[in-house]
Amino acid sequence: MKIRYLMLHAYGMGGTIRTVVNQANAMAKAGHDVEIVSVVRRRTKPQFAIHQDVRVSALVDQRQGRQTDSLARKAWRRFRGKIVPRGEFAAEYFTERVEKAAMDYVSSLPDGILVTTRPALNLIAARRAPKNVVRVAQEHMNLTAYPDTIRHEIARHYGSFDAVAVLTRTNQLEYQEILPDTKIVQIPNAVHKVDQVRSTQQNPVVVAAGRLVPQKGFDLLVKAFAEVVADHPDWRLRIFGNGPREARLRAQIDELGVGDNIALMGRTDRLDDELAAASVYALSSRFEGLPMVMIEAMTHALAIVAFDCPTGPRDVLTDGVDGRLVPPRDVDGLAAALKEVVGDRRRRLEMGAAAAATARGYAPDVVMPMWENLFAELTRGDRVGSR
């Protein structure tokens, strides 16, 4: 099969980029003709390893003329395209030039399977890709996380897709409600591997990871961990990632006087090693699609403490078995659950073992056949109108 993955920035970092690259790699290893097309290019080399048989190209090279974030936002307001609506989380990327490049690309495709990977690209494909191309929209975020402008466009245009792929059963029900005549399939993202070095649960370290943005709720986690430190002063929280909220988080840590216990570690290429050396993984997100770093932490047999945010944690975890689920944004509840887990090594070992077993359901050899079966089904002609 000829499979093209259209991504916003295949050369960047982030959970969606990593999972789509993993999927493309797996499809190439299975013998398929695979290409990754990046709408923009802002780095010379991809940040994630790409299989040698996967072709990579870019539509708009911005390495020499990248604008600052504030200038990009101003440019988008003045020169934004016609399809990508306000409210798309990456809307500032889609100037008229960028949007036109994406439209020209999808409209020129002669055949094969086109997989688009975020609402902006999905909407472009829904309105511009030829009918002889098998069109699959991937959604990496729950529907309720989007503003009304995006949900309106999804309801209006996603019905032209041959399939819409979502990450959880909860997501599937959401999309089926607004797209009753569209094929909505639930396929989780796969971790890169499940046979990982397991935590010994001996190091007094809690790990969290993600972009330093409001969605990830690290401000809530810092506040909760300050309560943990009062009872467990030997424990440390390490937050991996970078982003625009770094200065604000550092100020919060200083204000709470927990600089000796909480560290912003920046981005790392050795996250697996850091997870294996920790004992607990904390997820403090305000919303998610499917929290892949949490599942990767589970492959290392870490105990999990997570907000029961929409969506993902409850679709993966069984409260009290392989993790602890806490009401969304309940800082005191998060602190209490962390105290419970960090104070009981035997409990962490039990939870970690159960977490590793749960994570096996997200192994590449479990997930990738789901994609192959879907693509084969759609290529045979079982397309729009069946579920």
Rank of each mutant, 00 (worst) to 15 (best):
V326S: 01
R128G: 06
M370H: 11
C309V: 00
T144L: 03
K82C: 11
H32L: 09
A126G: 11
Q52L: 06
P147N: 06
G243N: 10
V321Q: 12
T149N: 09
V84G: 01
M292S: 05
G65R: 09
V321L: 14
M7I: 11
D162Q: 10
P147A: 03
Q172D: 07
E372F: 03
L378H: 05
V194W: 01
K100Q: 13
Q23H: 12
M351E: 10
A355C: 04
K183V: 01
S279C: 06
R128T: 14
R383I: 09
A357F: 02
H300C: 02
K82Q: 13
V21D: 05
N373Q: 15
P147D: 06
A226C: 08
D162N: 14
K339A: 13
H140L: 03
V40G: 02
V331N: 04
D365C: 05
M141Q: 13
A125K: 02
L275E: 03
K29A: 15
E88R: 04
L349Y: 10
T149H: 08
A359G: 03
E246S: 11
R348C: 04
A277K: 13
E99S: 07
I36L: 14
D272Y: 07
E177S: 15
N171R: 00
P313F: 00
N122E: 09
M103W: 08
A28Q: 10
T379P: 05
I262L: 03
K45F: 11
A165R: 10
S38V: 02
R156F: 04
R63K: 14
A75P: 02
N242I: 09
A24E: 04
L283Y: 01
G81E: 04
G333S: 03
M1G: 15
R80V: 05
I187P: 05
R383C: 11
R77M: 08
R360F: 07
R18L: 04
E350Y: 07
A230F: 07
S279D: 09
R55H: 09
R250W: 07
E139T: 04
K339C: 14
R118N: 15
T358M: 03
V229G: 07
C309P: 09
R80M: 11
A190M: 15
V342P: 02
E99L: 04
P85W: 00
V384S: 15
A353T: 13
